[in-house]
Amino acid sequence: MSAFISITDVHKVYRVGAGMLRRGQALQAVRGVSLAVAKGASYGLVGESGSGKSTLAKIVMGAERPSAGTVQIDGRLMDGRASALSWLRTCLQPVLQDPYGSLNPTFCVRQLVDEPLRIHHKGLSARELTLRVNTLLAQVGLPTHLALRHPRELSGGQKQRVAIARALALSPQCLVLDEPVSALDVSVQAQVLNLLDDMQAERGLTYLLISHDLAVVAHMSDHVGVMYLGALQEQGPVEQVLAAPRHPYTRALIAAAEPVRGRLAEPLQGEVPSPLAPPSGCVFHPRCPAASARCRREAPPLRQVAQGHWAACHNA
Rank of each mutant, 00 (worst) to 15 (best):
Arg294Phe: 05
Gly308Arg: 01
Glu239Ala: 14
Arg297Gln: 15
Val176Ile: 08
Gly236Met: 07
Gln235Glu: 12
Gln191Asn: 12
Tyr43Met: 12
Leu232Met: 12
Arg23Ala: 13
Val33Cys: 02
Glu64Arg: 04
Val226Ser: 00
Gly19Met: 10
Asp198Ala: 14
Ala306Met: 11
Ala312Met: 11
Leu56Arg: 03
Leu136Ala: 08
Ser274Asn: 12
Pro180Asp: 04
Ala290His: 15
Leu21Glu: 08
Ser102Ile: 12
Gly156Glu: 04
Arg65Tyr: 04
Glu48Lys: 08
Gln304Val: 03
Ala201Glu: 14
Gly19Arg: 05
Gln233Gly: 00
Thr135Asp: 15
Ala169Met: 06
Lys53Thr: 00
Pro275Ser: 08
Ala38Tyr: 01
Ala163Pro: 05
Ser2Lys: 12
Pro259Ser: 09
Leu56Asp: 06
Asp79Gly: 13
Ala29His: 00
Gly69Tyr: 05
Val113Arg: 02
Ala138Pro: 06
Gln111Pro: 09
Arg251Glu: 08
Leu85Cys: 05
Ala126Pro: 01
Tyr249Lys: 08
Ala290Glu: 15
Asp198Trp: 10
Gln200Glu: 09
Ser292Asn: 04
Leu136Gln: 04
His145Val: 13
Ala201Thr: 14
Gly17Glu: 07
Ala299Arg: 12
Arg81Gln: 13
Asn315Gly: 15
Arg297Lys: 14
Val30Leu: 04
Val238Ala: 07
Ser125Gln: 05
Ser221Val: 03
Leu177Gln: 08
Leu136Ile: 10
Arg89Met: 02
Val188Asp: 09
Gly75Thr: 12
Val16Thr: 13
Leu229Cys: 03
Ala316Tyr: 01
Ala138Lys: 13
Gly141Gln: 08
Ala3Val: 09
Phe107Glu: 06
Ala147Asn: 04
Ala257Asn: 00
Gln233Ile: 03
Glu266Asp: 15
Ile73Val: 15
Met199Val: 13
Arg132Ile: 06
Ile7Arg: 00
Ala147Phe: 05
Leu268Met: 15
Arg22Thr: 14
Ser182Ala: 12
Gln93Tyr: 01
Met199Gln: 15
His150Val: 07
Leu205Ile: 10
Pro275Thr: 05
His219Trp: 12
Ile119Ala: 10
Val283Leu: 13
Asp79Phe: 10
Leu45Asp: 02
Gly123Lys: 14
Ala255Leu: 00
Pro286Trp: 09
Pro66Ile: 00
His120Asp: 11
Val33Pro: 02
Gly123Trp: 14
Leu154Met: 12
Gly270Tyr: 10
Val216Ala: 04
Arg296Tyr: 08
Gly156Asp: 06
His309Asn: 11
Lys58Tyr: 12
Leu103Val: 09
